[in-house]
């Protein structure tokens, strides 16, 4: 959380993965199994995060290892994604991501990304 307060945008991605690692388990991913590598590029530099999911158990490392699904994405674009500022599917259709391998896994991983907007709360109910 400290990184976000400082407003240092380059930390948002690291923080996103660090939070997933701390979370350890995500009930929404109990049907998912496999690994996804995110190759985040910024000019010549590429940062890699390897996310492994085993029935909802999450683990994050910086290993450059083979994965079931590989996403190549520009840093600025991915920062917007981890902040919930854009939709992954639309971005993929625009060609902002290059995706290879197990697409189903990536569809499920969308559940880990925040959503962009909130709606109004419903009125408190009084069922007759």
């Amino acid at each position: 959380m400290a990184g976000r307060r400082k407003g240092k945008t380059s930390d948002a991605i690291a923080e996103f993965f660090a939070e997933l690692d701390r979370r350890g388990h995500e009930p929404l991913l109990e049907n998912a199994r496999g690994s996804a590598r995110f190759d985040v590029t910024d000019g010549k530099q590429t940062d890699r995060w390897l996310l492994t999911i085993e029935k909802g158990d999450l683990a994050v490392s910086r290993k450059n290892a083979a994965a079931d699904c590989v996403v190549r994405v520009d840093r600025a674009a991915f920062e917007r994604a981890v902040k919930g500022k854009f939709n992954l599917m639309a971005a993929a259709l625009r060609g902002e991501f290059t995706i290879g391998g197990d697409l189903r896994l990536l569809v499920l991983l969308q559940r880990l990304f925040p959503r962009p907007s909130r709606r109004r709360r419903r009125p408190s109910g009084n069922k007759p």
Partner: peptide, 14 residues
């Protein structure tokens, strides 16, 4: 099931 909504997104009515 894979695409089921998980958050609130007004644009997509999710």
């Amino acid at each position: 099931g894979d695409w089921q909504g998980v958050g609130l997104d007004d644009f997509r009515d999710e």
